[in-house]
Simulated assay, not measured.
Amino acid sequence: MMMDAANALAVIRALETQGVEVWLGDGGWGVDALLGEQTRPHKDVDLILRVDQAEEAVQALRALGFAVAEGRLSSCFVLRDQEGRSVDVHPVVFDGEGNGNYTMENGEVWVYEAAWFGGAGILQGEPARCLTVQGQVACHTGYKLDDEDRRDMTALHDRFGVDLLPEQEFPVR
């Protein structure tokens, strides 16, 4: 089952209703929200939230039929419903400068820079907080990009004129 815009928005609103601060994460719906339209099918929705709100997030999404399927609440975790829709959560600890420190499964820490949390996207005509275009580009470095990643980066470049990094300059259309 794919995660369509209506379901992604329902997940976000359920979290916000419970006071959970949430941002669309890197790639997927985060890119499409910046573009203001769905550009491809999505199997999940990637979210960033505060690690100290992870338990509240799980409780809020339980009401929508989601349960933790893998991972740890202090690191990356995935919730799944009976339809097979997934929510991939990257919990962060904010430092004094507003950077979000995300501890990956391998123990390394990825830093979402404070400025990246200022993104404003649109899902089904409604506002959704997300990473900025610059944050999206930065999050797509340090690993071999697949065709979806390269399409996402190309779409951001084409729409916003953002400079891509050398390993990202292989447009797939």
Score class of each variant (00 low, 15 high):
residue 68 V to I: 13
residue 20 V to S: 07
residue 173 R to D: 01
residue 29 W to A: 06
residue 165 L to F: 13
residue 95 D to R: 10
residue 41 P to K: 00
residue 11 V to Q: 06
residue 112 Y to H: 12
residue 42 H to S: 00
residue 122 I to Q: 14
residue 8 A to M: 03
residue 125 G to A: 09
residue 62 R to D: 15
residue 114 A to S: 13
residue 71 G to P: 04
residue 63 A to I: 09
residue 117 F to Y: 10
residue 149 D to C: 08
residue 172 V to R: 04
residue 73 L to V: 15
residue 153 M to T: 11
residue 98 G to N: 07
residue 136 Q to W: 01
residue 139 C to Q: 13
residue 72 R to T: 13
residue 145 L to I: 11
residue 142 G to A: 07
residue 111 V to S: 12
residue 57 A to G: 11
residue 26 D to L: 11
residue 4 D to I: 03
residue 118 G to L: 15
residue 91 P to D: 04
residue 8 A to H: 05
residue 130 C to F: 07
residue 69 A to G: 08
residue 147 D to N: 09
residue 8 A to S: 10
residue 118 G to W: 12
residue 62 R to L: 13
residue 142 G to K: 03
residue 44 D to I: 01
residue 144 K to C: 10
residue 86 S to N: 10
residue 87 V to N: 01
residue 134 Q to P: 00
residue 124 Q to I: 10
residue 135 G to F: 03
residue 102 Y to I: 07
residue 99 N to Y: 05
residue 167 E to W: 05
residue 63 A to V: 14
residue 34 L to D: 02
residue 158 D to K: 08
residue 79 L to A: 05
residue 86 S to L: 15
residue 79 L to Y: 01
residue 33 A to C: 08
residue 134 Q to G: 08
residue 111 V to G: 06
residue 117 F to P: 13
residue 125 G to W: 03
residue 101 N to C: 11
residue 21 E to M: 12
residue 121 G to K: 06
residue 93 V to S: 12
residue 107 G to M: 10
residue 58 V to F: 06
residue 88 D to Y: 00
residue 3 M to C: 05
residue 7 N to H: 12
residue 63 A to Q: 14
residue 103 T to D: 04
residue 139 C to Y: 10
residue 83 E to D: 12
residue 146 D to S: 09
residue 21 E to I: 09
residue 158 D to L: 10
residue 94 F to Q: 14
residue 110 W to L: 14
residue 15 L to S: 05
residue 51 V to H: 13
residue 138 A to V: 11
residue 90 H to W: 14
residue 137 V to G: 01
residue 141 T to V: 07
residue 137 V to C: 02
residue 138 A to S: 11
residue 92 V to D: 01
residue 105 E to K: 13
residue 99 N to H: 13
residue 154 T to W: 00
residue 29 W to V: 07
residue 89 V to A: 11
residue 151 R to L: 03
residue 101 N to G: 02
residue 140 H to R: 06
residue 116 W to R: 04
residue 136 Q to M: 07
residue 111 V to N: 07
residue 58 V to R: 08
residue 13 R to E: 15
residue 45 V to S: 02
residue 164 L to D: 01
residue 156 L to Q: 02
residue 27 G to C: 07
residue 36 G to S: 07
residue 66 F to S: 03
residue 72 R to K: 15
residue 22 V to T: 11
residue 48 I to D: 10
residue 160 F to T: 01
residue 166 P to Q: 01
residue 60 A to C: 09
residue 150 R to E: 03
residue 168 Q to A: 02
residue 48 I to A: 11
residue 142 G to C: 04
residue 95 D to C: 08
residue 130 C to R: 06
residue 1 M to T: 12
residue 2 M to C: 03
residue 129 R to Q: 15
residue 110 W to M: 14
residue 73 L to G: 06
residue 124 Q to R: 15
residue 51 V to I: 15
residue 70 E to R: 14
residue 45 V to K: 00
residue 38 Q to K: 11
residue 42 H to N: 02
residue 155 A to S: 10
residue 121 G to E: 09
residue 159 R to N: 01
residue 21 E to W: 11
residue 166 P to M: 05
residue 125 G to V: 12
residue 117 F to S: 10
residue 37 E to Q: 12
residue 73 L to M: 15
residue 89 V to M: 08
residue 4 D to S: 04
residue 3 M to H: 02
residue 171 P to D: 04
residue 113 E to R: 15
residue 80 R to C: 12
residue 64 L to V: 02
residue 142 G to H: 02
residue 40 R to N: 02
residue 172 V to P: 06
residue 27 G to M: 07
residue 122 I to L: 14
residue 17 T to S: 13
residue 17 T to R: 14
residue 110 W to Q: 08
residue 123 L to K: 05
residue 58 V to W: 04
